[in-house]
């Protein structure tokens, strides 16, 4: 590339004043800042809508039959309803069917998989005390192996009715979720693994176990409150 080495004839060898340099850079930076703010303003609403829609899709996916939702956060063991503008702070999402009956609660869970964090969303139905739906929000598991946690129908069948009953005290699970090797599931609280993707499947089980141990007792205690929240 000969262009690089050829000095431009238009530029005189003399150094321009520092003021000129600063002004030019300042002007360009101002122009740039102005443009960015403009584009930020224009795209703000569509971006927020995208996130909301993606979340809504996921919530309705893990709570089959749900058509509307309500967002909640938990402060000092109390449920507080949030508007859609405060979506980022929400801990759980209640889903309701057409008649306004509570279908269940969608919760997030996360743990370390084979390649980075796995974030999942699952649906918990307090009336049946079961997990009724599951979807992966984010994962970078090995394509063709670890990503079977998103696609393998046999693995996903684990989460159609996964038992998360509480014990007599109502403060802990009667049977915490257990991962088992592929084909070895005998109990409703066990998760059948995936051969060749053991680490990823166990990570999902661990995420669900930790999340259910914290949240399920709380939600179970508040289920009547949640049921009244439907619009």
């Amino acid at each position: 590339m000969s262009e690089m080495s050829t000095p431009s004839a238009a530029t005189p060898p003399a150094m321009p004043s520092p003021l000129r340099l600063i002004t030019t850079l300042g002007l360009i930076a101002m122009l740039s800042g102005f443009t960015i703010v403009l584009i930020y303003q224009v795209t703000l609403e569509p971006i927020a809508r995208n996130h909301r829609e993606a979340l809504e899709r996921a919530v309705f996916e893990v709570l089959p039959g749900a058509v509307s939702r309500a967002n909640f956060t938990v402060i000092d063991q109390e449920l507080i309803r949030l508007s859609d503008e405060e979506l980022a702070a929400a801990d759980l999402f209640a889903g309701f069917d057409e008649d306004g009956n509570l279908i269940g609660v969608a919760l997030e869970a996360a743990s370390r998989g084979y390649a980075g964090e796995i974030r999942v969303l699952f649906g918990y139905a307090p009336d049946r005390e079961k997990i009724i739906g599951f979807t992966v929000l984010q994962s970078s598991e090995t394509p063709g192996l670890g990503d079977k946690i998103e696609t393998d129908p046999r693995f996903l069948a684990n989460f159609e009715a996964l038992d998360v009953r509480l014990d007599e005290t109502g403060e802990a699970l009667a049977n915490p979720i257990q991962p088992v090797p592929e084909g070895a599931k005998t109990q409703p609280w066990e998760i059948d693994g995936i051969t060749g993707a053991t680490v990823s499947a166990v990570a999902v089980a661990r995420a669900l176990r930790e999340s259910t141990e914290t949240w399920v007792p709380l939600i179970f205690a508040h289920q009547d409150e949640l049921a009244e929240e439907s619009e």
Partner: peptide
């Protein structure tokens, strides 16, 4: 308009603007 001495800085700002967009 861009003086030779600050051209790379200016180019980077301009490119960064479009990238952000």
């Amino acid at each position: 308009l861009i003086p030779k001495q600050v051209r790379i800085a200016s180019y980077i700002i301009i490119i960064a603007t479009f990238v952000t967009a």
